[in-house]
Design a protein around this nucleic acid. Structure first.
Length: 353
DNA sequence: CAAACGTGGGG
DNA sequence: TCCCCAAGTTT
């Protein structure tokens, strides 16, 4: 057994691989433009990077196209109504990202002369921009030699250097390896290349080591440990919580909805008035006096840290009756697509779906 | 440092 | 059914 790879991974080999295998994505410029030394629009890179946080490329694509069509520049987005942006983000998850997206667009427009900052430290001051995203924008949009460390890079580095310390404790070690490899030449393409390598070749399960440009420099490949890395700390099991959602339809077709508070789960999103979500049977909390009927099925949904079993109750209420909570919204001002997924599941259940 | 924070797809 | 995973940030 050796402690070091046979030779150090060559950044140029990774760049060559990227030039041959780069995926065409809506926020990327084409190979011809890249060859001319052009760089992508920082607004589009920022938007894509926020959307891609803990989210797959497949899930992001349509949202990215919808956002950039409706709000082509950061100034357009800064001028949008909060409710419109939250509705457009509905279904993508991690809704703090959408709230910070607007804060950030407005900060760039008002505090930075409408231009994204180019340096890592200033980028880090923007809402929703952490160490990874600041490095991604600086390197991809401005070709600065910053080191991106996302889940892909962690996995690639853990394997290249056969690092068995479990995450997240291993993060500083893996970051150090990644920083040492980052080249001064074409750091933006290099950053995207490492992440593409992790996404398509150096995958979590069954990595395609036979296709990897860094195979001969990979200690885990030499030792046969690649598929077992990176190690991760054991996860906790998710508890189950119970809740009740109240779907009131007025006789004119309007639905009773409320905008959730900015803090906490589904913050800032539209939703059905309901009970607290608790491990014990929740107390009734009808938002309006009505003859509530319980639907004979639950809406089941899993969040990051708990499972939810949601009982759905429906009622038809007359025009003149006022709710204790929420407000009636008529179609088409309200569309089910504006709801976060768990709320849309409740709606689908009430519709008999 | 641990916990909160969504959702959909794959094995 | 259930667990893992995905271009992380904030508190």
């Amino acid at each position: 057994m050796r402690d070091e790879p046979l030779h150090s991974p060559d950044p140029q080999a990774l760049l060559d691989w990227y030039d041959r295998h780069a995926r065409a994505l809506p926020w990327r410029i084409g190979p011809a433009a890249r060859a001319r030394g052009e760089l992508p629009d920082p607004y589009r890179i920022w938007l894509s990077e926020i959307m891609l946080q803990q989210t797959t490329v497949a899930a992001v694509k349509d949202y990215f196209l919808a956002f950039t069509t409706r709000w082509p520049t950061v100034q357009d987005l800064a001028g949008a109504k909060d409710a419109d942006v939250m509705a457009a983000w509905a279904g993508l998850g991690y809704y703090a990202r959408a709230r910070n997206l607007l804060k950030c667009a407005r900060a760039v427009t008002l505090d930075h002369n409408g231009q994204f900052p180019r340096d890592h430290a200033t980028l880090l001051t923007l809402p929703g921009v952490g160490p990874y995203t600041a490095a991604a924008i600086a390197s991809i949009a401005f070709d600065a030699p910053e080191t991106v460390v996302d889940g892909n890079v962690e996995r690639v580095m853990a394997r290249l250097f056969d690092e068995h310390t479990p995450l997240p404790a291993a993060k500083p070690i893996l970051t150090e390896h990644a920083a040492r490899l980052t080249p001064q030449d074409r750091p933006g393409c290099y950053a995207q290349g490492v992440m593409d390598l992790g996404a398509t070749i150096c995958t979590p399960k069954r990595p395609a080591c036979g296709l990897c440009p860094w195979r001969s420099a990979c200690t885990a490949w030499v030792r046969g440990t690649a598929a077992d890395l990176p190690k991760k700390s054991p996860k906790k099991r998710k508890p189950t919580r119970l809740g009740i959602a109240y779907l009131a339809r007025r006789v004119d077709g309007a639905w009773l909805l409320e905008t959730r508070p900015d803090k906490g789960l589904l913050g800032g999103m539209l939703g059905w008035p309901g009970s607290d979500w608790t491990e014990d049977q929740p107390a009734e909390a009808p938002p309006i006096r009505a003859e509530w009927k319980t639907i004979d099925a639950e809406a089941r949904h899993t969040f990051t840290h708990f499972h939810l079993r949601l009982t759905v109750k429906t009622a038809l209420v007359p025009m003149e009756r006022n709710p204790d909570r929420g407000e009636f919204i008529e179609l088409p001002e309200f569309s089910p697509g504006d709801l976060p997924t768990v709320m849309r599941k409740a709606f689908d259940l009430a519709q008999g779906g």
